[in-house]
Design a protein around this nucleic acid. Structure first.
Lengths: 351, 351
DNA sequence: TTGAAAGCGCTAACAC
DNA sequence: GTGTTAGCGCTTTCAA
């Protein structure tokens, strides 16, 4: 292993100078020439910083913890991870990733592990937008919740704007001239089902169409749910359907088609999630509203890093008021809503 | 921050003793009592090891690099990551994850970054089984390829057994009594298309059924491909179809149904990939062959860690023969084939 | 069995 | 500007 010492010796400078030359330290001005020379030598020797030593000395690891309850399980979560990584990368941070697979004990251990590795913060992310109770260890470190939130609201959270999404989806149908829009909603009460229903109602209200509860059909949020909702849709006299998600839409497609109905001629349909494997490949391709996963990841990490800077500053500003920091964390609690993008395809027909 | 020093002082022992008491060092025997006391104090003080310091001192980071070209893009890759993580965890290692999104420059930087962080090895994984040219930096560290392989075969690779998978899929149909099995294969030449075709042929041969090239239909490996293959399937006089993957099967379902055909009454169908969102929710649910993603991840990391141990040992055994290590790495090259599991559902009918 | 002390490789005061 | 040096927190050899 080539150390800074080797580089310094070879370049005929002190170890400190070598460090500065390589790190572009702004507190010290080193002649171009020296800097150049040191770098050349470093290159030649194949020198590579030791992040462990560096981190130890600077009290900063350049590591960010990313805890997820299901990158593996879900086709969604990957995008969040990607966004988080890309944003972390921009600040020269690396992601320490652990998937808890929904196990709280693992989550707790994951935290401990990450704290040992001196992570500069932890992003706690869920594959489905819901209420979580993150491990207590999290309170010991700068934390941000992604695609989930805690009841105590101790941590800032970045979540999709379900209401806006629901409204956008409904508007897709309304704008096409439909007036009786059925809504197959998840029968389970979740941020998504509650928010999207609210958005649905808002859209109707703005369009001056009275809300008709008989148009809201409650089912499980999957293909089977959509499939089984066909009867109800037919019976409701609806001319179009907003499905709680793409999977529901997929099931509905199937059921409608087997009854000889055509999409979008007989029914305009929109889904939710923009789940690539499904939405883009149904016949006809499904218009839908996407979840802003990538953005969630990006914003989560951005928030984390911003809080980090802020904490540092404030702790410098009033290092004797330890409580200020604690207060800050609670007070500064906020929920960032990220809009859901509309994806128009071929399942909506203008009337 | 509570340091080992604090614990030692509070417990009235030296810092070294404290370290031993906490780490269960096997070279030193510490009285139960002392050990217990130190641990209690550590607990009370909320002591937490500093992995950076520990790693620096021991020359070992407990970090493993995981480079992927698309955890985000693919619903598959997540499982690999999960397997890798679980296995790493078992050895108390953490995963440093970077997704290159297919960008070679990023891959190269990712390597550099990981090397700086003193990773003990790098698992280079791809979301699709194919030939890769990993960055040269990889040669500087213990590496294993997951779900991909390099042409120079410099690194050990863990990949799915496409041949066995293809054979298993075909057998699903053969065992049900079908004799004219069509195979909608990917028209692009890939390890999957080549291997599965070989497996298809093997299954036929073992069943004593002559291989009929007219039953092999080449299409793109997605819904559209499957959809467009319906005509050819009908024309071929096949009684069943092995689809290159579940997406293809999904398209075929669609096309067949719209032509009034029933599955599995008129056609038995099997897919490949066991892509949850699709296979388990088609009507009827699709029998298929799964990709052993989780196992790939587990085995990859296991191999990596095993190689690590081996390297250490051999370098101790003959530390003056540096070349031995180098040779070993090249010679020990191997491709580990992981079997693809069969998943029986309802799309195959016994005749 | 225990403690003192020498690093691990690097950064950042501080002195020159 | 550049070098000296004192750590960062922990492990581990060596002596006691």
């Amino acid at each position: 292993m080539v150390t800074l010492q080797d580089v310094a010796r070879e370049a005929g400078v002190s170890i400190a100078t070598a460090s500065w030359a390589i790190n572009d330290n702004r507190h010290v001005r080193i002649p171009e020439a020296t800097q150049e020379r040191v770098r050349k030598v470093a290159q030649k020797l194949g020198y590579r910083q030791n992040a462990l030593a560096r981190g130890l000395a600077r009290g900063q690891s350049d590591l960010i913890g990313f805890i997820s309850d299901g990158v593996a399980t879900s086709p969604f979560a990957g995008q969040v991870l990607q966004g988080a990584q890309d944003e972390a990368w921009r600040s020269n941070k690396l992601l320490l990733v652990i998937d808890t697979n929904g196990d709280d004990e693992i989550a707790s251990k994951a935290c401990a592990f990450m704290l040992e590795h001196q992570v500069e913060g932890i992003a706690y992310s869920s594959w489905v937008h819901h209420l979580v109770t993150p491990p207590n260890e999290l309170s010991k470190v700068n934390t941000v919740l992604i695609n989930c939130f805690d009841s105590a609201m101790r941590y800032p959270a970045v979540v999709p704007d379900e209401v806006q999404g629901g409204e956008a989806a409904t508007n897709l149908l309304l704008a096409a001239g439909h007036t009786r829009v059925a809504f197959i909603n998840d029968k389970v009460r979740t941020p998504a089902s509650v928010g999207r229903l609210r958005g649905y109602k808002q859209a109707l209200a703005k369009a001056g169409i009275p809300y008709d509860p008989s148009l809201v059909i409650l089912r499980t949020a999957d293909q089977e749910g959509g499939y089984s909702a066909a009867e109800a849709v037919l019976a409701s006299g609806a001319d179009s359907v907003f499905c709680h998600n793409d999977r529901t839409a997929m099931g509905l497609y199937d059921a409608l088609k087997s009854r000889g109905k055509r999409i979008p001629e007989d029914f305009s349909i929109v889904g939710f999630d923009n789940q690539e494997v499904i939405a883009n490949h149904l016949h006809p391709a499904l218009s839908t509203v996407g979840l802003p996963q990538y953005a969630l990841g990006v914003l989560g990490i951005r928030l984390l890093l911003a809080n980090n800077r802020q904490t540092k500053q404030s702790s410098v500003a009033n290092d004797n008021k330890e409580s200020a920091k604690t207060n800050m964390r609670i007070v500064s609690r906020q929920e960032t809503l990220v809009p859901c993008p509309v994806v128009k395809r071929r399942s909506v027909k203008h009337v």
